[in-house]
Write a protein that binds this DNA or RNA. Structure first.
Lengths: 142, 142
DNA sequence: TTAAATGCAAACGCTTTGCAATTGA
DNA sequence: TCAATTGCAAAGCGTTTGCATTTAA
């Protein structure tokens, strides 16, 4: 079921603005910020407003159509949920972001459930650290 | 070596404001926000300013004397680094925060280093999800 | 027809900054 | 003494909100 159908099924209107926000989210492989979505929206609909972007993202989150990830940039980034969950290794030294398949965190998720009864929501986690390249350069053996 | 000594060793001045910020950080077992530190500082030094708190925290971070954790509240919380690293399970349903000993994440840290050459900085990680109590209440079996 | 959604402008909350005055070493 | 530090006020930034207007259904 498409985002459009899900919106309508839940009694929400299919406006041009919403369709353009959804399109922007689908048109990128990266995680995209509200500002970036707004720029795309604005280029095709000059009167559109960034508050509409935020309101639409809020709605899409509530419908579990998008996920939010905080890469520690002081703003949050969005990603279409249906594209699957994955995680990110964010290098604090060079900024490089390495994708991490979801399964890499299964052992952790299982352990938290087993030992703490805690159902961890590990969609789109960002883990800080230092990538292999930077470690080599800095002679960091940690 | 105390925070005071480390500051001085690195050529920074030991002002009353800095000492009070450090004291506020040490006086709490919880993670404390800049605002909360400021309130304590202000009660003893009415002319103190919150920008001094932020500048001091910035400095203490740089010297690895405090760590920063984002609990997803729209602000960041601080903790004395020497008190050791631990992690947090944050329940999205009731807000309960369960501490998690550092060792629980060792297998993950090792796996990331082995498989990706990535040295993860897992000091004070906050993991979202649902606690055992809320899972029971909601009949969530996940 | 009408409740939902939008655009606009203003406010919000946390954080940062420029600058003159103060102060620790 | 004098560069480091502070207080103050203002701005910066991402995000949210109140309200009149517009619009999808």
């Amino acid at each position: 079921m498409s985002c459009h159908e899900i919106l309508q099924k839940n009694g929400h209107r299919l406006t041009l603005q919403r369709m353009l926000v959804i399109e922007a989210l689908h048109n990128t492989e990266r995680h995209i910020s509200a500002e970036e979505i707004y720029k795309q929206l604005h280029s095709r609909h000059p009167y559109a407003n960034i508050s509409t972007v935020y309101r639409t993202l809020e709605l899409l989150k509530k419908l579990n159509l998008v996920t939010e990830t905080d890469f520690g940039e002081g703003r949050v980034r969005y990603h279409v949920a249906e594209k699957g969950h994955h995680h990110h290794l964010v290098c604090q030294s060079c900024g490089k972001i390495t994708d991490l398949e979801e399964s890499a965190l299964h052992p952790l998720k299982d352990a938290l459930l087993r030992e703490y009864g805690f159902d961890a929501d590990l969609r789109h986690l960002a883990i800080s650290g230092m990538c292999s390249g930077c470690r080599r350069k800095k002679g960091n053996k940690a």
